[in-house]
Amino acid sequence: MKLAIFDRNRLGVVDGDRIRDVTGALPFPYDEDPLTAGWWRRLCRDFPGLRDRFADSPSRPLHEVQLRAPVLNPTKVIAAASNYADHVAEMHGVQERTLGAVEPWMMNFDIFLKAPSSIAGPGEDIVLPKDVVAAGHEIHHESELVVVIGRGGKDIPVDVALEHVFGYTIGLDITVRSPADRSRRKSYDTFSPLGPWITTADDVPDPGALTIDLTVNGETRQHVHTGDMITPVAAIVAYASQCMTLVPGDVLFTGAPPGVGPIVTGDDLHTSISGLGEFRTRVR
């Protein structure tokens, strides 16, 4: 099932080029305010028992609605670093050019946090910070598979970790290449575009069997198979839960594939993941 958030934070089911408003089928109070939208986390946690409620409702053309980011006020945005071998290799050259030296510790897999306020919807522009541009720092795209946590937990065993996933979406982890901490360089407003919707986990039998593509102004920049991850999705979820309790609705970027590169004002980015959808965003 493809679940979207649209217009005034309504919940919709996407069927092809149409969307059905299923907000009224929720068995708990709905609040359109994203800061108090506890219904969203309850949906992530309880979805297996709610799916049948969304089977039937009137639909309308998808182009008539405005798609929003498909998550609401997650308690945290977790991101994996150095999770594709070819990206680790290319980062040696990127760091030599942008930092003047390679930081060896950054070449190892790990996780870090991004600000939830960096989340943007699939149709929103990526806004480059004026001070960063003025300082001459490169700002890069990173197109990634993104996990949304369903049933949360702490110290989740890797063999059941995928049972704790609500669904998957597409994300861009926009990154400033500078000496600053990862969390700062990746947390500017609009630096985490997500969309176009969440494909629930029961419709993604193997998150390691997907293809990620990104073009900039029509030029292919990234093309990779998620099976090339150093640490697969289940292991990332388990690893993150060893450090912090995962809460329903939390967002987890699974790592940048190779092919990262700079973006500048006026660029048009198109990203897609097989079976999950696609979206386009511009840079200003």
Rank of each mutant, 00 (worst) to 15 (best):
I139H: 05
D173F: 01
A120S: 15
D31Y: 01
E219R: 13
F253M: 09
V88G: 00
C243S: 14
T190A: 05
P122R: 13
Q222A: 05
Q242N: 14
G121S: 08
K2E: 10
F47K: 08
L162D: 09
M91W: 01
A238I: 01
I78K: 03
F47N: 09
K154F: 13
P193W: 04
L3V: 12
R184Q: 12
E142C: 01
T75D: 15
Q66K: 15
A85F: 00
I174Y: 03
H164G: 07
L3M: 09
R284E: 12
G16E: 08
Q222M: 10
N108T: 01
V165Q: 07
Y30P: 02
R42N: 10
R18D: 13
G277C: 07
R42T: 12
E64G: 04
D131I: 14
V251L: 04
G24S: 11
E124R: 14
S192W: 03
L99P: 07
A115Y: 07
D86R: 15
Y188H: 15
D131Q: 14
H63K: 12
S57D: 13
N9R: 10
R177F: 04
I149E: 08
E103V: 15
L210W: 04
H141Q: 05
P257I: 04
K186Y: 00
D131Y: 12
F191S: 06
E144Y: 01
I119R: 03
D155R: 14
R185V: 03
G261A: 08
S117L: 11
R151Y: 04
G259V: 06
I139Q: 06
W40A: 03
L50E: 09
V158A: 15
A89T: 12
R284P: 13
E64T: 15
D31C: 13
G195M: 13
N217L: 11
D7C: 03
D56L: 07
I78Q: 01
R284W: 04
A135R: 10
R18F: 06
P27A: 05
K76S: 11
V251N: 08
T190M: 05
P74T: 06
I212W: 04
V102A: 01
P205Y: 02
I273D: 10
G208E: 15
T281A: 11
R182W: 15
A180R: 13
D268E: 15
A135I: 06
V165W: 02
G277I: 05
V88M: 00
V247M: 14
T254V: 02
R184I: 14
R8A: 14
P74N: 06
T23G: 05
D110G: 11
G167Y: 11
S274M: 07
A209S: 14
R282N: 11
G227I: 01
T36S: 15
C44E: 08
R68F: 02
V102Q: 00
T231S: 00
H140C: 09
G153T: 09
R185T: 10
H225N: 13
V71D: 06
S59I: 03
T23A: 05
S178F: 09
I78H: 10
L252Y: 03
N108Y: 00
G16V: 11
D52R: 13
G227W: 03
R177A: 00
R284C: 11
Y84N: 00
A134C: 07
G277H: 09
R68P: 02
P248V: 04
V165P: 08
A180H: 12
R8E: 15
S143R: 01
I263K: 02
P262R: 10
I170D: 09
L210S: 07
A201T: 08
I170A: 04
D15Y: 12
I230G: 00
S118K: 02
R68A: 09
S143N: 11
